[in-house]
């Protein structure tokens, strides 16, 4: 579903992502972990077509992000690390706006909004202006908007930040359900315990370079993901 080949992104002289090679297939949930400033968000932004990149190739379901950005974007949903939404719209208007962009039919959007907004306990507040929402509510709305068109690839930047325990639990279930239905999920996180529980695959990035990628079992073996991550950090430091 997602194929990244030799991706390099520079900001001036600084290399933010260095020769990244990665694949996430349909049905996989892949955690993208690394320290702050390692290049996770930059990589996600390159995949979602927000920023251009110097070298490499990214394809989503066979569609080249650089050559056919609009078609590629139709396959994905991107959730940024901070849920900045159009505050002057009502929650429901925002969801309709996103549904219109992705060409979701009335019946589909009605059914999906009903399902996901109820699961994340935001449905009753959809009639209010987004400016009146708390951070967590904005995050929930952003999640519903990301799910409204049943994306083939879900790109999430720290999706659990700001969610209450119930919404967090529900979203984990939704992620698993989507993966079982054939969607691929690639998400950055610092919560290694959750990643360990729900992800089939893991990718570790350090100083712009991918230092490990594989199934969760392959990477962590009998140890915890946290200890493996810390060991790898130490190894590359020394």
């Amino acid at each position: 579903m997602l194929k990244i080949e030799n991706l390099t992104k520079k900001f001036g002289d600084k290399v933010a992502v260095d020769n990244l090679n990665l694949e996430v297939s349909a049905g996989q949930i892949c955690a993208f972990i690394g320290h702050n400033g390692a290049g996770k968000t930059t990589a996600l932004r390159c995949i979602s077509g927000i920023i251009s990149f110097e070298e490499g190739c990214i394809t989503i379901d066979g569609i080249d992000v650089s050559k056919n950005p609009l078609e590629a974007k139709k396959q994905i949903a991107y959730l940024p690390d901070n849920p900045e939404l159009y505050e002057h719209l009502k929650g429901i208007d925002y969801l309709n706006f996103i549904a219109d962009i992705f060409g979701v039919s009335v019946s589909d959007r009605k059914q999906r909004i009903d399902e996901y907004a109820h699961k994340l306990e935001i449905f009753d507040d959809l009639g209010a202006l987004i400016s009146s929402y708390s951070h967590g509510m904005k995050q929930k709305l952003a999640l519903v908007s990301a799910l409204i068109h049943k994306p083939k690839l879900l790109l999430l930047d720290e999706p659990f930040v700001g969610l209450d325990p119930n919404a967090s639990h529900q979203f984990k279930l939704i992620m698993q359900q989507l993966a079982s239905e054939g969607s691929a999920i690639f998400y950055s996180t610092h919560v290694l315990e959750v990643a360990e529980k729900i992800c089939s695959h893991v990718a570790i990035i350090k100083n712009a370079k991918l230092i490990a990628h594989g199934t969760m079992k392959e990477i962590k073996g009998m140890k915890s993901l946290e200890s493996i991550f810390l060991e790898m950090e130490d190894e590359t430091n020394s």
């Binding site: 002057h88 706006f97 009335v106 009605k110 009753d124 209010a128």
Partner: peptide
């Protein structure tokens, strides 16, 4: 902000993307 009104029924209507974008621009402006 004032207490949010709890709403149970919403209107779902397909609109052209351009009209959504225009609405977004005007709501930002106002």
């Amino acid at each position: 902000s004032k207490n949010r009104k709890k709403q149970k029924q919403f209107i779902f209507k397909e609109k052209p993307v351009f009209s959504d974008l225009l609405k977004k621009e005007f709501s930002t402006l106002l």
